[in-house]
Amino acid sequence: MKGKVVSYLAAKKYGFIQGDDGESYFLHFSELLDKKDEGKLVKGSMVHFDPTPTPKGLAAKAISLPLE
């Protein structure tokens, strides 16, 4: 699924993505496929991810940034 980063707290390594389906997904650095892309996780960045339901809500897994 595609989505847009709505927040990312680099110090805490987490944030949120708004998916194309309108839902909010929890984003964690550990799910970023290329850790070098962390600096690109800023508000408004477009990402691809696997939407995954968890006991705490919806989460983004296997997060990647589109090729530039």
Rank of each mutant, 00 (worst) to 15 (best):
M1D: 03
M1S: 06
M1P: 03
M1G: 08
K2C: 12
K2N: 09
K2W: 12
K2R: 13
G3D: 00
G3A: 00
G3S: 02
G3L: 01
K4L: 12
V5S: 00
V5I: 12
V5W: 01
V6N: 06
V6D: 05
S7L: 14
S7Y: 15
Y8Q: 01
Y8W: 07
A10W: 10
A11N: 12
A11K: 13
K12G: 05
K12S: 08
K13P: 01
K13W: 04
K13F: 05
K13S: 05
K13I: 03
K13R: 12
Y14W: 12
Y14R: 05
Y14V: 05
Y14K: 04
Y14H: 05
Y14D: 02
G15L: 02
G15K: 00
G15S: 01
F16K: 05
F16S: 04
F16M: 07
I17Y: 00
I17C: 02
I17Q: 00
Q18S: 08
Q18G: 04
Q18W: 10
Q18I: 13
G19P: 00
G19Q: 00
D20K: 06
D20E: 13
D21H: 04
D21I: 02
D21M: 03
D21Q: 03
D21W: 03
G22Y: 04
G22I: 02
G22K: 05
E23G: 07
E23W: 09
S24A: 09
S24Q: 14
S24K: 15
S24F: 15
Y25S: 00
Y25K: 01
Y25V: 02
Y25D: 00
F26G: 01
F26I: 06
F26A: 03
F26K: 03
F26H: 04
L27E: 00
L27H: 01
H28S: 12
H28V: 06
F29V: 12
F29T: 06
F29I: 10
E31A: 12
E31N: 11
E31S: 08
E31W: 06
L32H: 02
L32E: 00
L32P: 01
L32Q: 00
L33A: 06
L33Y: 05
L33T: 08
L33D: 04
L33G: 04
K35M: 08
K35W: 08
D37Y: 07
D37P: 02
D37H: 08
E38C: 05
E38S: 07
E38M: 06
G39T: 13
G39C: 13
G39N: 13
K40Y: 09
K40Q: 07
K40N: 07
L41R: 00
L41C: 03
V42P: 02
V42T: 11
G44S: 04
G44M: 04
G44N: 06
G44T: 03
S45D: 03
S45P: 06
S45W: 05
M46L: 14
M46W: 12
M46P: 11
M46F: 11
V47H: 00
H48W: 14
H48M: 14
H48L: 15
F49T: 00
F49R: 01
F49H: 01
F49G: 00
F49S: 00
D50S: 15
D50G: 06
P51F: 08
P51W: 09
P51Y: 07
P51V: 09
T52K: 11
T52S: 13
P53Y: 13
P53D: 11
P53Q: 15
P53K: 14
P53W: 15
P53H: 12
T54Y: 06
T54F: 05
P55M: 08
P55T: 10
K56R: 12
K56E: 08
K56C: 11
K56S: 09
G57E: 02
G57W: 03
L58F: 09
L58G: 05
L58H: 07
A60L: 02
A60F: 01
A60G: 04
A60Q: 01
A60H: 02
K61N: 07
K61I: 10
K61V: 09
A62C: 12
A62G: 11
S64K: 11
L65V: 15
L65H: 04
L65Y: 05
P66Y: 15
P66N: 14
L67F: 13
E68H: 12
E68F: 12
E68P: 12
E68V: 12
